[in-house]
């Protein structure tokens, strides 16, 4: 089917070989710092760092843009709310702040195979139920899309062309039936997948042969995040502007 998996470029990314635990920890700390920023300058500094990181990651811009676009409606909604209730500066600040956070997290998940991201989460003692939920949600999203795509093709093959207008009752009935059937079929498929996992010894714990070890390059990545975070904080406190002007 035509949908793209979020980690499809992970293996060819420059950031792939870094320890996923270091990437996860650095990203989360960076996101927390960005989330509490109050000045536009600091958010811009954080944004520049993330864009630089995206540039060296070798993840295609189109892939990042596509995944970013999925989060865009939520960002626009938050920015619009601020625009209507506060000022355009606040709206711009919140919009940029969320965008930088989303981009940072996107970089993490596009440059790390999903399974390894989950392993890193487990390393930091995220409960097994949460990591399993994430694993199955991620896998089942594609199943749902596959089923929906197959049914859409089947509809088209039997002459369904979509509604002519928004009040086309028959089109709505067809689409509603398709959505219902998609869930039913996906449920059957999901049960089969879970059974298949059980029959190969799965007991809820994710195991791989990788024994990740923090290396010098991971320390370098952590250092670059630390420097970027310090620059962002300096900018937030006005120290950066003061230093540059004096």
């Amino acid at each position: 089917m035509s949908h793209t998996e979020i980690d499809m470029f992970a293996r060819r990314s420059f950031l792939y070989s870094f320890d996923p635990r270091v990437k996860l920890l650095c990203t989360i700390i960076f996101v927390v710092i960005v989330a509490v920023l109050r000045t536009l300058e600091a958010v811009i500094v954080a944004g520049i760092f993330i864009l630089l990181l995206a540039a060296v990651s070798r993840v295609p811009v189109k892939h990042l843009a596509y995944n970013f676009a999925l989060a865009l409606p939520f960002i626009v909604f938050a920015a619009l709310t601020m625009l209507l209730t506060k000022s355009w500066e606040n709206s711009l600040l919140i919009g940029l702040r969320i965008s930088v956070c989303v981009l940072a997290l996107l970089l993490l998940v596009t440059t790390t195979p999903f399974f390894k991201t989950l392993q890193a989460l487990r390393y930091f003692r995220i409960p097994r139920i949460i990591s399993n939920l994430l694993l199955f949600t991620y896998r089942f999203i594609f199943l749902l899309l596959d089923e929906a795509e197959r049914m859409s093709m089947a509809r088209k093959a039997r002459g369904f062309t979509g509604g002519r207008n928004l009040l086309d009752k028959r089109a709505f009935q067809t689409i509603a039936a398709t959505i219902g059937m998609t869930f039913v079929r996906s449920n059957v498929r999901a049960t089969n997948i879970y059974d298949a996992l059980l029959s190969r010894g799965y007991n809820g714990e994710m195991r791989t042969l990788d024994r990740p070890k923090v290396k010098a390059r991971d320390a370098a990545l952590a250092l670059s995040f630390t420097v970027a975070s310090l620059l962002v904080i300096s900018s937030e406190l006005g120290v950066l502007g003061w230093t540059l002007s004096s």
């Binding site: 059974d195 190969r200 007991n203």
Partner: peptide, 27 residues
């Protein structure tokens, strides 16, 4: 017991072939 499902898409779960074949032995 090892069960081979009728539809292999029900069974293949991991991102690469090697990882999928290794899934059981690792577990």
């Amino acid at each position: 017991v090892g069960l081979l499902f009728q539809d292999p898409d029900d069974q293949i779960f991991m991102p690469t072939v090697w990882e999928d074949v290794a899934f059981g032995p690792i577990n």
